[in-house]
Design a binder for these strands. Structure first.
Lengths: 222, 222
DNA sequence: TGACCTGTCAAACAAATGTTTTAATTATTT
DNA sequence: AAATAATTAAAACATTTGTTTGACAGGTCA
């Protein structure tokens, strides 16, 4: 089996990649503490010592998994996907909300990306800092512009911040409260594209109605 | 035997209470898995065997801590803030939202109530099942009635579920996203009663405006 | 008082788990 | 082809941690 490039290196990278995939799945499902390297290696079909050999220790593997997941999610859902600059802000808002939900409810190999970030919220590691600056702040700015366009007021108006938060909070709700919602109303959890779109439609109309009512300007600016 | 308020029994209850308090603090700070029985007993100034003696095992202690915390928080901030049953639903909604936020942002000995529940969302333990049924579902039903009153439609209308979720999602947002919000907009995090009340006012008016606009009835009922 | 219950304590136990070690296998180079 | 480096594999190691055990102290009640 003479491979033209570097078989040893190829195996090295392949095992590494499988450990990243398995780590993502197991960390997302079990949490950092409950995820065992034995389980990760079992899923990755690798030896128990593989994690330490390739990543040093469990913590380093976790950091690498976060970067890996972040990269894959960005690749699948680029931040500016399907948002034409010339579109009216109402349409942009609908697209923003819908794509947000699609990311959250995404099935498949990138589905653990959201769960990993959720865990970072509760127990922030150093990775959250760069994650906020690189991924979350750009999206936040994007939403601010849309909301300011709908409210027809300057970006630094307090209502922009307030209403943006109201929109985002509805989007991330199922992100964080899925276990509770699943127990309270099992049938209400969106599961297919149609129900996700219905949910996006509700959040959009709910938020648009609230913003169109032009709430009184708060006393203090930000 | 006939245990009234004799020293032995008093010690029993006292140790038990201290274990609950210590458990709340340690579980909230470290999470269920990372919190060790040894640490809890150290904080409670009790012996290592105390947890097993008084609660059976670590899981049972955790469940009791959750009940204890939620009970204390509800006792301190009742959902309707003493509003009479006859009050208009708009006033009830405002009280519901405000007390919800007060519970979340509460400082002091009951402050870990919020963190505990946040962790349950991300990393559900067996305790979540009973917590949902005993504590959360009643509050959910309460909100449903309020929302149904505002929408002026039957309880099983799909819009009741949808709008209730929109309200709750705004309330729990800072619960879960605090680390991100703290990095994105450090100055926007509510910190005193005045800013909490302003936030409650925004959520209330935002949601009322959305609901008063009477969104079109969805095709399917629940 | 003396049997008896209850709660506390220190020590030990047993299981899980991250990590290391050492040998075997595979690939690359000379 | 032989030597060397790289990767994998199996077992052992060391630590943590929930739990149990058995002794002991304090109080109760016959």
């Amino acid at each position: 089996m003479k491979t033209r490039s570097h078989p040893a290196v190829r195996n090295h990278d392949e095992t590494r990649r499988q450990l990243l995939e398995a780590g993502g799945a197991v960390f997302a499902e079990m949490g950092f503490r409950d995820a065992t390297v034995r389980e990760i290696c079992r899923v990755a079909k690798a030896n128990i010592a593989a994690v330490n050999y390739h990543f040093g220790d469990k913590d380093s593997l976790y950091l690498e998994v976060l970067r890996y997941a972040h990269g894959k999610a960005l690749e699948k859902y680029p931040p500016l996907q399907g948002l034409p600059e010339s579109a009216p802000p109402e349409k942009k808002l609908r697209a923003f909300i819908h794509s947000f939900l699609l990311r959250i409810f995404d099935k498949g190999p990138t589905s653990w990306h959201g769960k990993l970030i959720s865990r970072e919220m509760i127990e922030p590691t150093g990775a959250l800092d760069s994650l906020v600056e690189e991924r979350i702040r750009p999206m936040s700015n994007q939403l601010w512009k849309i909301v300011a366009g709908i409210l027809d007021c300057p970006l630094n108006d307090r209502r922009v911040w307030m209403c943006s938060f109201s929109v985002v909070s509805q989007c991330v709700f199922f992100h964080h409260c899925r276990p509770v919602v699943a127990r309270l109303f099992p049938k209400q959890l969106p599961h297919d594209p149609a129900s996700i779109e219905r949910l996006a439609e509700h959040i959009t109309t709910f938020s648009l109605a609230a913003m169109k009512s032009r709430p009184a300007r708060s006393a203090t600016k930000r």
